[in-house]
Amino acid sequence: MEKPNNLLGIHQLLTLQVLKSDKLTDLANFIAFTDQLLLKNELDKVGNTSHVFDNGSFTIAYCLKESHICIHTWPEILTLTMDIYLCNYSQDNSKKVRMLANDFISYFDAKIIKQIEVER
């Protein structure tokens, strides 16, 4: 297989607004959903670490062999921020970054406030 031109890959930065705060305070379901997405997209999880705040909001970082996924939730303002970065070293993961972003937007039933894509 030929390696892609951009080995450093694509990084998406998202700010999303939701209608209901329930998923912004449900870390367990977010982890289950994300783990399924990683399996579906054949991405390798190195590990993850998280913290739940007093108001139920959470922050979590997934370390992947391909790079990372991070999220921070703010239920009090119905908002979350997320970044998804996959390198292209072993294969072109550009489509996967975009698919993951769309899957997370659907999961949260969210409206895009800001979506920035950076070619690394």
Rank of each mutant, 00 (worst) to 15 (best):
7 L>H: 11
10 I>A: 02
11 H>P: 09
14 L>P: 06
17 Q>H: 11
20 K>N: 12
20 K>P: 04
21 S>E: 12
22 D>A: 13
25 T>W: 03
25 T>A: 06
25 T>F: 00
26 D>K: 04
27 L>S: 06
27 L>D: 08
28 A>P: 00
30 F>M: 02
32 A>Q: 14
32 A>S: 12
34 T>Q: 11
35 D>G: 02
35 D>M: 05
36 Q>W: 01
37 L>N: 09
37 L>Y: 00
38 L>C: 01
38 L>W: 01
41 N>F: 13
41 N>Y: 15
42 E>V: 02
45 K>Y: 00
50 S>W: 02
54 D>H: 14
54 D>F: 07
55 N>E: 11
56 G>H: 01
56 G>E: 00
56 G>V: 04
60 I>T: 03
60 I>V: 14
61 A>I: 15
62 Y>P: 03
62 Y>A: 06
63 C>L: 14
63 C>G: 04
63 C>P: 02
66 E>P: 05
67 S>W: 01
69 I>L: 15
71 I>G: 01
74 W>T: 11
75 P>Q: 09
76 E>M: 01
76 E>Q: 14
77 I>C: 13
78 L>R: 13
78 L>K: 14
80 L>W: 10
80 L>T: 09
82 M>E: 10
85 Y>D: 01
86 L>P: 05
87 C>E: 09
88 N>K: 08
98 R>F: 00
102 N>V: 02
102 N>R: 11
103 D>V: 01
104 F>W: 11
105 I>E: 08
106 S>K: 15
107 Y>K: 01
108 F>E: 10
